[in-house]
């Protein structure tokens, strides 16, 4: 029973990973790709790690998997902010159908 629940959570995580990577290929510019890929892959990896924790139970493996969840919460989103800011500062424009760019106006 516990094994089945763990495998289902891992399966949901892998599906989110798939949508994130597919967005990385399909979307048109850097910022949209960053957005889809960060969300999809971060939550997908959380699903995989929580599933590993459920599968292994409360021992050293499971606790380390939960610790990795907390670390990914801080590092992944912060890394995506840094990349977006760096891309904007290095002069990459938004996609041609974009509506507004308040950041460009304020610089």
């Amino acid at each position: 029973m516990r094994e089945l629940i763990g495998l289902i959570i891992i399966g949901i995580g892998v599906a989110f990973d798939f949508f994130g990577s597919f967005g990385l290929i399909r979307l048109p510019d850097v910022y949209n790709r960053l957005q889809a890929a960060t969300k999809g892959v971060t939550v997908g990896t959380w699903g995989i790690l929580i599933g590993v924790c459920v599968l292994s139970g409360f021992n050293s493996l499971g606790v380390k998997a939960l610790l990795a969840v907390i670390l990914i919460f801080f590092t992944s989103a912060t890394g995506s902010h840094a990349l977006g800011r760096g891309a904007h500062k290095s002069g990459i424009k938004l996609w041609k159908k974009s509506v507004c760019d308040k950041y460009e106006e304020d610089q």
């Binding site: 949508f19 399909r26 939550v43 509506v99 304020d106």
Partner: peptide, 26 residues
């Protein structure tokens, strides 16, 4: 919110016309 965000991303990526209208707001 995370799960809602992922369903949203999946919808926008899979949809053939890609319903996006991006921009940077303050």
């Amino acid at each position: 919110q995370c799960i809602k965000a992922n369903v949203d991303v999946a919808y926008r990526v899979i949809h053939p016309k890609m319903p996006i209208k991006p921009g940077i707001v303050k």
